[in-house]
Design a protein around this nucleic acid. Structure first.
Lengths: 125, 125
DNA sequence: ATGCATTAATTGCTTGTGCATTGAATGTGC
DNA sequence: GCACATTCAATGCACAAGCAATTAATGCAT
């Protein structure tokens, strides 16, 4: 790729990202009271990615999954917990760590939000 | 595209965006004291896009160019102005509006930063 | 076993962003 | 000519994100 191509490809990527994130943010927030990052985390957990062998989700693994810093994810988990979508429990194998797991409400909320999410993606991809 | 394809395409887009923005942010900030959005605005101005017929750049037009809200761009311009990279001047044709224009220093800074920008893009695109 | 580096997660702080509001200038209808 | 709606940019406010420092637990070397 030459310089110009790289530049235009980057701008296309930026434009597409901005459009979709903006639309997702609006739809998910209005209909399900969720932000994009929040949904992404729920989605990862619902599909079982990033799951530790012992059945829980570690904060740092989730953070890498969704491209957030560990501090951002720590607060995001706290937000989800306050809304009752997720619970934090001690990890007895390594007591520095925390296990995050979906609650029933979390699973339900994700199930409700997923069609909205997919609809927006389908519209723009 | 079916549901799964859309989902994986979206995650690829998110991952690529996160990787590149993160790398750009680091490089541009360390080497040129610029953020990604700041560079994007300078870049648009340097190439002459979004230029009004009367030769200035209006805040709102620039905002659309770089996918930022009008308020975000207002503050971004203020930051650039504080660093001496742009100037704001009254638009006498429509005195609600503001003309933003690159200073010499702004043009120089952009010229220095562009190779860094392109290098990062070339690496990841 | 003790000390030291490492790792996990949280918290303080700063910053950039969006939404809503404001203030000023313009345009429109009567 | 005068009110009223509209538009441009700036500002108050709330919030999410990153960095750095902190706390707690683990691993390792001697």
């Amino acid at each position: 790729m030459n310089d110009t191509d790289v530049g235009t490809a980057w701008r296309q990527l930026l434009a597409q990202h901005a459009t979709i994130v903006c639309a997702l943010e609006r739809e998910l927030h209005d209909r399900h009271d969720l932000g994009v990052s929040e949904f992404e985390v729920l989605d990862r957990m619902a599909e079982g990615a990033c799951k530790s062998p012992d059945g829980g989700f570690r904060v740092q693994e989730l953070a890498e999954c969704v491209h957030l810093s560990q501090s951002a994810l720590s607060r995001l988990i706290a937000r989800l917990e306050n809304h009752g979508l997720v619970t934090r429990s001690l990890c007895q194998a390594d007591r520095r760590g925390v296990f995050v797991s979906l609650t029933e409400k979390g699973r339900d909320t994700h199930a409700e939000a997923r069609p909205t999410h997919r609809a927006v993606l389908g519209k723009y991809l």
